[in-house]
Design a protein around this nucleic acid. Structure first.
Lengths: 160, 160
DNA sequence: ATGTGATGGTCGCAAATGTAACTAACAAGC
DNA sequence: GCTTGTTAGTTACATTTGCGACCATCACAT
């Protein structure tokens, strides 16, 4: 019978690897900081792209818009971020981390970075290069490559 | 401020890529065959390892045991698989695809394979090699490498 | 200005999910 | 035999999720 060899089937491998990594990371920001996965992603995205809209965050982090909406609400209630109306387009609002949000973020980052280091420590330099090249190509194929138009557009809205 | 660069943060990239792939695949087995993600995984695992126990499927496919239980139930109701008690250990049951289940499976496989082909078509042979090597190493580090003991043990139970 | 369609974001509700408790069966010690 | 501890699988309940409907706003045409 013609059948798939799951161990070599790329989508399967991707999913398993992603699940394993997520699981281990959740132990960090979940247990220690009480964040859900979408909350952490929104936090990280806003730290890197301050004052983005919910839509931008969702597109960038591949999060469904209701997930973003709920995560933003939760982070807002905790005072980790605040919302700022865009006078140019009153449908959307800019999101920005509060001082508290930033403080928490910089506590979490080193733990995340350490995790990645541990992961990459097992790779020879040559293999690591290989890994990153593979991902770059994969993202290209999947249409996930950092969309310059998206970021450009976000800039424009902020009037930069 | 010290912060992560999400575009280069491995866990983030893994998740995004996996999500994008899952999304596209679900369009195939979901819309066309009415399968959920866990159902499809159970189906594929049983096709490759006929007559496994639910536990084996769960461990192999990184699925929570309640997910497996429910997926098996659904597939059973559809008569895509049947359960067979293990007389040596009456707590567990062997799962096997029915004729109908196999028929459906072989319909789905080519579509999955075609999807992967399309994905890999964008890779130079050198890059593809790179990709697979990277994943092999990644799985090693994450402890996902095909666990020979697991499969061995499954064999033993079946009395092979 | 008014109508038409599109967009950002929220919300209700049904479906999917995870945790923990549970049942039934095994295994080892006494 | 009995007791204790463990394991395979199911189920109850609470949480999370996604779809669709929704509102307010904008963009553009007439």
């Amino acid at each position: 019978m013609k059948q798939l060899d799951l161990e070599h089937f790329l989508p399967y491998r991707l999913n398993r690897a992603a699940a394993a990594v997520s699981e281990q990371l959740r132990a960090v920001y979940g247990r220690k900081y009480g964040l859900t996965i979408p909350e952490w992603r929104v936090l990280a995205t806003l730290a890197q792209f301050p004052c983005s809209t919910a839509q931008f965050v969702g597109r960038h982090a591949s999060l469904h818009k209701t997930k973003v909406s709920r995560a933003v609400q939760a982070l807002d209630e905790r005072r980790w971020l605040y919302r700022k109306e865009n006078p140019q387009d009153r449908r959307e609002e800019f999101l920005e981390l509060t001082k508290l949000g930033c403080q928490q973020y910089v506590l979490i980052v080193p733990e995340m970075a350490r995790f990645e280091e541990r992961l990459l420590a097992a790779f020879e330099p040559e293999d690591a290069r290989c890994l990153f090249q593979a991902f770059a190509r994969l993202e290209e194929v999947l249409g996930l490559s950092p969309d310059p138009a998206l970021i450009q557009d976000a800039r424009r809205k902020k009037g930069v």
